[in-house]
Amino acid sequence: MSKSSICSNQLALYTKPKSNALQSAVQYIKKNFWLYLLLIPGVAYFLIFHYAPMYGILIAFKDFDVVKGVWNSSWIGLDNFTYLFKSKDFFNILSNSIIISFYRLFFGFPAPIILAILLNEVRSNTYKRTIQTILYLPHFISWVVITGIIYVFLSPSTGVVNLMINEFGGKSIAFLQEPKYFRSIIVLSGIWKETGWGTIVYLSAITSIDVEQYEAAFIDGANRLQTILYITLPSIMSTIVVLLILRMGNILRNGFEQIFLLYNPMVYNVADVFETYSYRVGILEGRFSYSTAVGIFQSVVGLIFIMSSNYLSRKVNDAGLW
């Protein structure tokens, strides 16, 4: 430990306590010197990598010139936003983002709840633990690998699925080129990857239920379904509501990787979402200002969504996120 800190501690001891606010503040900081020192790298990190880009939001309101930099580029006001709202891409990406999100919510949200309740009903602990180990695995595998598996499985010429279709006399289908199959593939592969992992939080909520409740129900002659409906489900309701609210707040967010890795120009009209669109126009086409405007729209609307759903949750459930 450094000498200076020892000195400063001694100093703190020997200085006469005055009713001076500044002095007591200095003393407080000296007393907690290490705690504040430890905070510095983390705070600096967030300032540089999260708050500095917020300054870059100005790019959306400027005719951004890389040579001139953010500050010196000329202002163009809301031109990028009016362009965005008028373009027909906008309606397409907005509706795709909402539709895909909604499918995910409708089919994907209940899945881990059901699975967690089923797991809780498994009697043998060894069996349960083995199953859990397998269920958590897909969460740790990258989208690149999983979409890679999807590609090789669905390949029209050599994929397992089409080999089976051919076996039964059917014709090969290029699943990933067909707009009608695309969203189902996105939603199903998402459920496949994250359902197992999603059970963790519900299972931990279930373990905090008092066992006596189940015993009392058994003595009263309740059957399995009744204990699930009247004990398990109500006990995890607050967890369900909090997670549902989080999901509602993220309704415009679909993530970049999964969709980017699976889509192709033939399915853009059903697959393109905010993340993929702002990447294409920004990084590939170099329209920095326009792409920033797209990002701001998504961020601001997302913020409004999450604030209002948190407010609702506080009202209804008294269990908000903050």
Binding site: P53, G56, I59, G282, T292, G295, G302
Partner: peptide, 19 residues
């Protein structure tokens, strides 16, 4: 709050790229 706020709002792709 300073840290949690970054979960709710971010500058987006291009400002980060520019950084």
């Amino acid at each position: 709050m300073f840290i949690v706020f970054t979960m709710l709002f971010n500058g987006g792709l291009i400002p980060k790229f520019y950084l």
